[in-house]
Amino acid sequence: MSSIEPTRQDAQASLDKIRARTLPQRLWSWRYIVLRRVSQLGILLMFFGTAHWGWQVAKDVPLLTGNLSASKFAGILPMADPFAVLQIFLTGHVLQTEVLLGAGIVFAFYLILGGRVYCAWVCPVNMVTDLANWLRMRLDVRPIFHITRNVRYLMLAAALVLSALTGVAAFEWVSPIGMMHREIIFGLGLGFIALLAIFLFDLLILKNGWCGHLCPLGAFWSVVGRHTAQLRVRFDARTCTHCGECARVCPEPQVLNLKKIAETGYVYSGECSNCGRCSPLCPEGSLAFDLRPLIRRHNERSARVVS
């Protein structure tokens, strides 16, 4: 087995491949983004349909009541936001079993699948920030300043400390995620101003500013999925030509540190939200969604093919 350092020509060849894609190929590379919108809007629609059109799975069994903070699916499956429950717990209040069970179910789901799957596939604010980011790329907005993406962990700590100090769930009271979901499902308030602020912030001030730098819920899920996530992006260092297209489209480019992920064989960082931008774009097929237990075997197989 010999690892060949990719040359500049290899990288250029990869870039040329991307440019030479036909329209159907281009559209096909958007497949995960389309699926994510279907997922995000579908969840929103299920909540909305249950609230306004009385959608039911059976007689008097509503489909999906509540919102992302706490909900119940088909009258039996309780779900709750573990971060919200943690904040309420820190205010010093005892909660009922239903919401604890719901938080446990959701926590276990993302613990196994990967915490920030929530961010890319469920969170409604992601649609707003993705739009801002897309527009920012089209308009070629220059960065004004950089701050470390670790600010979000400070925000996470602050949310927990402020909850304990003020006696109310600190993030839930200002969360644009909660506002967006509530106001779409239960009627309009002024929450869209917060969303507009996030849109403008991401578009004109800081790239990936909200989701990638500030959101404490994203930070929470980053921590949750860090070591246990099973759905990960496999990285095959042998086929990679270092063209850098993946990092260009990635909303969290620090997770694509090619040196480090070449060692592990996959994108290991909890900050990867499995958004599916990089893998369909990669001209060499070096990045692909995979289940973690299978990644080593798949990478070895491709090594055999290459050698």
């Binding site: 249950t50 609230a51 509503p62 009541t65 509540g66 919102n67 903070s69 706490a70 909900s71 119940k72 709750a80 936001d81 919200a84 429950v85 309420i88 205010t91 010093g92 209040h93 909660l95 919401v99 006696g167 109310v168 769930a169 839930e172 909660g178 506002m179 509530r182 106001e183 499902i185 239960f186 009627g187 309009l188 308030g189 002024l190 929450g191 101003i193 917060a194």
Partner: peptide, 28 residues
């Protein structure tokens, strides 16, 4: 206590048969 414990999920609003209950919007 209510302000601390309420998770703002709106399930009470969903289940109110008379549409009595509303959720307070932002900025109200």
């Amino acid at each position: 206590d209510f302000l601390a414990v309420c998770i703002k999920c709106g399930k009470c609003v969903n289940d109110c048969p008379y549409d009595t209950l509303k959720l307070a919007g932002a900025g109200g």
